[in-house]
Design a protein around this nucleic acid. Structure first.
Length: 492
RNA sequence: GCACAGGUGGCAGAGUGGCUACGCGUCCGCCUGCAGAGCGGAUAUACGCCGGUUCAAAUCCGGCCCUGUGCUCCA
């Protein structure tokens, strides 16, 4: 079964074909860095990370680019707040570092490059100039707007009602534009105090002077529009025609619609062949977002539940359906991850310290492992259905546990094969990590001697002492479990 | 209002014409010094509403209701 991806442009699941054989370009519309990344961002990241890993697994060489929007009124609004910084660029780099940290703790594969809007002003000016020259854009009072009427297929992605002349538009821009849907490519001057007032923390002194960084341009000093930044970065770091342009569902209009229009008007080429939109994470009936102040930051979530459990939660709903955050859903994810991990280590410990080999192949286990692998592949090929892929993983864990509980002697060759499959699917493709942080040698020695001591007490029947030691270990974050082959432990 | 996506058991969430979803939770049993894990079984009469097509509909068609997102800050 070949890979099928839902293309927002057509609304259909389409067979994926890359522009260049064996090579895929992906651009992901990254964060506007005006706040800490939250679980909603993590959801998009984790799903795109799996898409990228799966394409690599299919044999494609993937060039993955993810930008940071570091020019934005919301960033300006936070100047002088807490330790964020005294200028737009300082605030932006503070939050960029936070985002990069969050990505690392989520175990995401790094992008080929993380371009920043502020470092692409010459490219942005070049595109705007060519749009003006080809009559797709016009200058007005030192600002430049894209002329929506000049681009025939405007609206193909999001289907807005262009006849609606009452469409909401920025009051300050209304007089400068020919059509309400025309959008700014370049905005004259700095950010006005009024336009950031609503984003400014009310406990802070208001910013009274026009502020934010500005750059020179043929139309006078000003700032680039939001949409043109991504066009410039995508074209520079990938090409004029890329395979996949991904982002959150909330970016479809106006951001992606406008990116597509201006890019295609400028180059005459299809900007992206596949548009992929990740549906949003909701909490209590509304989307999780910085502006609604209902978010759970990635770092807080990870320190409370651990990176793997968070990932388990986020991929337990496929990317093209929205997901609801709740405590019980998180709890379920913690349990699901625990089940996967425990079976993995149960098998690994057995394979590392084999007892007697049955010498026969457990056909049930073998077939289950092989068909689960196939099911996993089919699931990801079916529009990256991560929930179905997880089902395949649990098919393997169930078969392994059943094998252990059904026989006295084990089929080690199939155990090893199953373990290898489990490792490949869970680690290489879904990006989980079975290795908890490494302990230093003295901690390991301490744990081992405590476990040994507990065994001695147990063998003497001193269960009270043994349970006390188990409790101590628990406080150290170490869970001891007694099995037929002696005690094992894992970290919380 | 317009556009798009959804509505599935206690929860969560796959499934696109006939076949137990996986899981979490709850209950019972086995195992165990205990705990945990695991296994076995049970529970859940599930498919928003109303029509239609069909031997057969959660699945296809039509209408309606509801939810979310977007409609110039947003993953």
């Amino acid at each position: 079964m070949p890979l099928f991806i839902t293309n927002s442009l057509t609304g259909e699941k389409e067979e994926f074909k890359s522009i260049i054989p064996d090579s895929v370009s992906i651009y992901f519309c990254g964060l506007t860095v005006s706040d800490l990344p939250h679980l909603g961002h993590a959801r998009a990241w984790v799903h795109v990370d799996i898409m990228r890993r799966w394409l690599e697994c299919l044999g494609f060489s993937v060039t993955y680019v993810e930008n940071f929007t570091d020019i934005n009124e919301k960033i300006v609004a936070r100047i002088g707040e807490a330790e964020y910084g005294e200028s737009e660029s300082e605030v932006a780099s503070y939050f960029i570092n936070k985002a990069l940290e969050a990505m690392e703790s989520l175990g995401l594969k790094p992008a080929y490059v993380y371009p920043k809007a502020s470092e692409h002003i010459p490219e942005i000016i070049d595109i705007i100039t060519s749009l003006i020259n080809s009559n797709h854009a016009y200058e007005s009072n030192g600002s430049v707007y894209f002329d929506v009427g000049s681009f025939e297929s405007y609206g193909a992605l999001s289907n807005p009602d262009l006849k609606d002349n009452s469409a909401p538009t920025d009051a300050n821009e209304a007089n400068e534009k020919k059509h309400p849907y025309d959008f700014a490519l370049w905005k004259a001057g700095q950010v006005s105090p009024e336009s950031i007032a609503k984003y400014r923390n009310s406990s802070l002194p208001p910013i009274l002077e026009p502020s934010g960084d500005i750059w020179d341009s043929p139309w006078g000093p000003g700032r680039p529009g939001w949409h043109i930044e991504c066009s410039a970065m995508s074209m520079k770091h990938l090409s004029n025609n890329i395979d996949i342009h991904a982002g959150g569902q909330d970016l479809m209009f106006p951001h992606h619609e406008n990116e597509k229009a201006q890019s295609e008007a400028a180059t005459g080429m299809n900007f992206a062949n596949f548009w992929v939109h990740i549906r949003l994470l909701e909490t209590q009936g509304e989307k999780m977002s910085s502006s609604l102040k209902n978010y759970f930051s990635v770092n807080n979530a990870i320190s409370e539940f651990g990176s793997n459990s968070i990932k388990m939660f986020l991929i337990s709903t496929s990317y093209h359906r929205h997901q609801t955050y709740s405590d019980s859903a998180l709890h379920e994810a913690v349990e699901r991850w625990g089940r996967l991990k425990r079976t993995y280590f149960r098998t690994l410990n057995e394979v590392k310290n084999p007892s007697s080999d049955s010498g026969t192949v457990d056909e049930t286990l073998l077939n289950s492992a092989l068909s689960a692998k196939q099911k996993f592949h089919d699931s990801l090929n079916d529009d990256f259905n991560t929930r179905e892929a997880l089902v395949a993983l649990f098919d393997i864990t169930n078969s392994l546990n059943r094998h252990f509980d059904s026989y006295e002697e084990y089929d080690y060759s199939t155990l090893e094969l199953s373990l290898e499959i489990l490792h490949n699917l869970a680690i290489d493709i879904l990006g989980f990590s079975f290795n908890s942080a490494n302990l230093d040698k003295s901690s390991l020695d301490l744990i081992n001697s405590l476990i040994e001591l507990r065994e001695q007490e147990r063998s003497k029947g001193n269960y009270e002492k043994a349970d006390g030691i188990r409790k101590e270990l628990d406080l150290l974050g170490v869970i001891v479990e007694d099995t037929d082959n002696g005690p094992t432990y894992h970290r919380k």
